[in-house]
Structures are given as C-alpha cells and as structure tokens.
Design a protein around this nucleic acid. Sequence first.
RNA 1: GGCGGGGUCGCCAAGUGGUAAGGCCGAGCUCUGCAAAAGCUCUAUCGCGGGUUCGAUUCCCGCCCCCGCCUCCA
Length: 467
Amino acid sequence: MEVRLFNSLTRSIEPFRPLDPKGEAVKMYTCGPTVYNYAHIGNFRAYIFEDLLQRHLEARRFKVERVMNLTDVDDKTIRGCRVMGVRLAEFTQRYKDAFFEDLAQLRIKRAAHFPAATEPRYIQRMIEMITFLESKDFAYKAEDGSVYFRISSFADYGRLAHLNLEELRPSGRINTDEYEKESIGDFALWKVWNEEDGDVWWESPWGRGRPGWHIECSAMATAILGPELDIHCGGVDNLFPHHEAEIAQSECFTSKQFVKYWLHCAHLLVDSQKMSKSAGNFYTLRDLIERGYTGREIRYALISVHYRLPLNFTLAGLDAARAALSRIDAWVRRLHERAQAASAGGVPSFPESESFLKALDDDLNISGALACLFDWIRDTNRMMDLGELSEAQAAKCLADFGVINSILACEAAQIDVPKEITQLLEERQNARAARDWALSDTLRDRILSMGWMLKDTKQGQQVTRNS
RNA sequence: GGCGGGGUCGCCAAGUGGUAAGGCCGAGCUCUGCAAAAGCUCUAUCGCGGGUUCGAUUCCCGCCCCCGCCUCCA
C-alpha cells in the first residue's frame, strides 16, 4: 500500500512518489499566516491538515522537510502598524510570537523553516527574480512604477485553477485603479511605494517599493527547498490566484516544474456560515481557550473532518471532540493499569494501528482511520471486561497506539495533581473508610468544583481533568 | 455565465454494485453507599424522478437544494 493524494493539478488521486530518487526525502511548502492579527481557527484548520499530512508521511518513513512562510509585509500589516503607531517589524513580531504559541497549543509540529518575507536575503532574492523575469519579458514595469507579471507570457497560466482566462468574469473584487496593467490578470511583483506605506519600503531597481504577495512564496520556497518541490499546500482560496501566480513566477525563473503535488484544504464554516467578524462567529484560538476548551480538543475537532470537505465548526462539535477524547483517555489509562510494567515482547502487533495508517494512505481518510481506532478501543475494552487481555497484550496495545498518537497527537498531557487536591483526596479516603458518606460527598463536590473529575474505582479514587 | 465541492441516523461523518463504518447525543444494562466516570448493548436503507442490472446508496440521465472560487481571504 502506498500513500495516495488528491492533486489539485490533475484533480485526481495519485500515488505519492517524491522526486527524491531514493523515494525518501519530501520537500513540502505550506503557505503560512499573514501576521497582522491572531490567526483564526479557519487558518488553523489548514495548518492542522498540513500537520496531519506531515505526520502521516513521517509515519510512512518519509523524511519531510517543511517550510512555512510568514507574510510580514502586505497591505494589512502596514495598515495595522500605522494604526498602532509602531514600526512594522514590532507590529508583526507580536503576532509572530502569538502564532508560535498557538501552534504549540494545537500540537502542530514545527516546520523546519519559518522564513519571513522581510528578511533581507529573501527581499534580495525577490528582487533578483523580478529582475530576471523583467529581462526575459515575463514582467514589465507599468506606468505607475510597479512591476507586473505578464500572464500572456506563460502559456500554462490557469492550468492549476482550470480557469479559462478568456472567460474570467469580473467579481467586483478587482482593484479598478490598476488600469496601468496590460491585462487585467497581470499581477504585481513589485509595488511602487505610496504614501500609505509610510516608512515601509526597500530600494530596488524600480525605485522604492515593496514586494507583491505572490513572489515571496516563490522566492522563499525555491531558496530553501530548491527549484522543484514535492508538495505545496494551502487553503482552497489560495489556489487562485496565489498558487497560480507562484507557478508562473517560479517556472519562468527556474524552467522547471515548480511543484509535483498541489494539495488544498476546504474552508471552515462556523454554524454553517462563513466565518466573519460581523456575523459574530469569528473565533481565534484564544477565544476558544477562554471558553474553556483546550488546544488538544480544538485540534481534534479540526483534524477529524476530511481536509477536502468543508468543516462546519460548532461548539457542539467541540463538545463531541471532548467526549471522544475522554473516551480515548480512559482507554489509555485502563491499558496502563492493565499493563503495569509488563513488556510487550513477543506479542504480535494489533492489526488496528496498521489499518489506521492504511486509511490515511487513502488521501488522508481520517474518518476511516478514526473508525479503526474506535473499533479497536471497543474490542480491547471488551477483552478487558472479560479479563481476556493479558498484561503483555495491554503493553503491546499501548505501543501500537503510540504510532497512532504520533499522527493524531491526541493523548492527554500529563498533569500533576496539585497538593490541595491530593489533600482533599486523602481526607475523602479517610471519610470513606469511616463510611461517612456525607463528608465524602461534600469533599467530592469540592474537588469537582476545582475542575477535577473524580471517579471511585476498586483501586480507589482517581482524578482527571481536561488537558 | 464558467469551474468545483456537497446532499447518508437528532448532530458530525466513512463507505461499497449485493441488502450501510465510526464519533457525539439518547435509551437500556453493568459497576457503585449514592453519584459521577467508565464499560457493554441498542438506534438509518443513503435529496427527488427515471434508466442500466439478477441486484444500486454506490453506474448513467434528468431535476431540486446547499456551499465555494472566478485576481492578492487558510
């Protein structure tokens, strides 16, 4: 069985074979955030999908080198820093920091590289690329002083989005003041400075200005990963024009096929609506954490719907994620209790962890994979009910679950029980020994009110809490 | 108008030409001093109408809804 992925370029599911002749190394580029605000859960849906992809490929023994860029200069970041009256770098730094905190909360594996558009070496590279493109007539300087890519010079333009350029229809989003362009579809490589840019500008052969959005990804991707990438991901909304533009710029510059597999995840809806601040259904990760949800729960909710399907995000869905996780937690705890220090040596692997991976091989069929996991949970729970799961088998189960968890990253974090709780538990234990149920119940309420779940088992009291 | 995605149990959501995974919720049972938690068990004929077929949710045709994208929103 091999990994198969839906390639937007061909609109079909294809076997995944990396460019690396040894079939090991995978070069993966993922469009990252524009750091002008806290990222919202729609953004994170995309990053979690990419995380799932990376982790699964790694479980399948690929060596993934992933790049995620940070867009730290554009209209919104410039506007933001001017409103706050701070320098651009200072403004974006706070959202970069926040972004990395959020990634950690969501257990998203860090990319190998997080290049930022304004790093001098990348600005330099963008200028080099644009200079080259202009010299080959792929680009031109327009009357307004900006440099545009000439889409008519690249025959493949439109191939990724499968758009017929002749039939493009104005959507109302066109910036009508860009009449200087030769063609409506031409996009900016270099934007000439204007007053609204304030002190944000770089010197270039075309005068002061700043790079266009698309060129940064081409520059950073090829600078770090080379001219040819295996995988490039992003949200569907980036498919056109952003990725189309990236292909055009990159391929005209390198004369090589830029990306072999293009993967796009669908949008996230909130309560069946497009998320928007005006509709009041706009959530950042921080909003949800304030509501008492954990990064782990949010991760599970976002990962558990196939990436090419619109994900309808709801608080009820988060509650469902919480319940599903606590079921997994309880199972893992039970396995630990059963396994104790037993070694799994000699016990054959349970087939479920492999069927889990096989489901993911099929274009990341997460629903199928989770079904394998829960079937497995039910079966082994039943075995434990009947006393038919040996200590060694339980240990093996945990080892096999480790593979699944290396992808889902769903296991509960170890939380130390604080002293106050331990003390209350001790008191309650004494009360119970004395059959003082009233006191026992009072103490239970107190523990519950402090945010801990309490359960009486044959082995005594057990406390847990959401993580 | 063009391109694309989707309509499967109350909610979320797999899947297959042969009579429908899984999760949540709900119900029942077990456990328990009572609870809670947990565990087990149970719960659908797949948008509508045709066609192909021994047989379709799965293939074809038509229709009805919903949702994206069509120049800088993951």
